[in-house]
């Protein structure tokens, strides 16, 4: 088990290095840099730009270095916790991102929790009551959830939230608390606002998970080992939870790694519609203005989430499934 852990952690290192290189290349891919798009913007407004000042800025930001040197500087900074400097905001990236990263994590953790809490009972019910009216009804709801565009759902829920609960439209907290230090009231306000984006972002994920859980459970429900459990005299509920559900869990645990980045990037459009102070909209803006270090930090953050998610799901799988832990095939 220890060897497995060490091996698994060691694999993460080259993965992260490769990802950082690819991220950097992608950021560098569009022609020009932040300054050239800044100049173009100024010139379109009829202002002249002093070439000497531009050169000075270039040198200051390190944009005159070769791509390799720029990469090394950037990665060196990352390792020391220095995310670099945002040209657009004229502030260190850490300060620009600020609460956003934290709020993003809160939002997405809440969403994943929502998906699981809703999808599990429904999926299990659908599987154990296959082809019943309940199954059909829930399946229909699931398909509607899959088919409705997120932003439309966002608008509808915002309207309903405002009309029924009087919650202010958009944002993740009441406007009064923005830029205020954290307090109990601010946290409560966040919770009050959280449910709309959570439902919006989580709906399609929930619907998808219900379908998969139902299919997985149906595969397992009639396996011989379930019959054995029945022959032992186990009651329906205990049997279900101990055997088929346990086996059906594997694909979900394996899925955690995919879930994290998917939810994070999937929330960008919704966040723009809902004007949420999460990382999604900022990432898009940073990519547009070629705000290199800001965009790079976001992309690395996403990559880190993926890699960590995969690591966690591998750990959980090894914990859940002795076949993986003990390194055995499914030999007959």
């Amino acid at each position: 088990m220890l060897a497995f852990l060490v091996r698994r952690v060691l694999i993460m290192v080259p993965t992260l290095i490769a990802i950082s290189i690819i991220t950097f290349v992608i950021i560098q891919l569009p022609p020009g840099d932040y300054l050239s798009s800044y100049i173009a913007e100024l010139e379109s407004q009829g202002e002249s730009v002093d070439p000497a000042r531009i050169a000075a800025l270039r040198a200051q930001y390190g944009l005159d270095l070769s791509a390799t040197e720029q990469y090394l500087v950037w990665v060196g900074g990352l390792l020391q916790g220095d995310l670099g400097f945002s040209f657009e905001y004229q502030q260190p990236v850490t300060e620009v991102v600020g609460d956003r990263l934290f709020l993003t994590v809160v939002l997405n953790a809440a969403t994943i929790l929502f998906i699981w809490v809703v999808a599990f009972p429904i999926g299990i019910y659908s599987a154990t009551h296959q082809y019943s009216w309940g199954d059909y009804g829930l399946t229909l709801l699931g398909f509607i959830g899959l088919a409705t565009p997120n932003f439309l759902l966002a608008l509808v829920l915002l309207y309903l939230g405002n009309v029924w609960f009087g919650t202010s439209i958009g944002g993740m907290m009441d406007p009064a608390y923005i830029h205020q230090p954290w307090s109990t009231d601010k946290a409560l306000s966040v919770l009050e606002h959280l449910w709309v984006p959570v439902v919006v972002i989580g709906t399609s994920g929930t619907a998808g998970m219900i379908r998969r859980l139902r299919a997985n459970m149906l595969d397992e429900l009639h396996k011989p080992y379930v019959v054995t459990a029945r022959a032992k005299g186990l009651g329906p509920m205990r049997r279900l939870v101990k055997y088929p559900l346990r086996t059906a869990l594997n694909p979900f645990v394996a899925d955690i790694g995919n879930l994290l980045p998917q939810v994070v990037s999937g929330s960008a459009i919704v966040s723009m519609v809902l004007s949420l102070p999460t990382t999604g909209p900022m990432l898009i803006a940073a990519l547009q203005s070629q705000d290199m270090y800001l965009a790079g930090s976001f992309l690395i953050f996403l990559a880190l989430l993926t890699v960590i998610g995969m690591f966690l799901s591998d750990l959980a799988l090894a914990w859940l499934d002795p076949r993986i832990r003990l390194g055995a095939g499914t030999g007959r």
Partner: peptide, 21 residues
């Protein structure tokens, strides 16, 4: 109350009839 206690059964394929987990 009868199943597994007063009447028991063993199956043909012990690999699939036992839970691997």
């Amino acid at each position: 109350r009868l199943r597994g206690r007063r009447i028991s059964i063993i199956f043909q394929e012990p690999m699939t009839s036992l839970s691997t987990l």
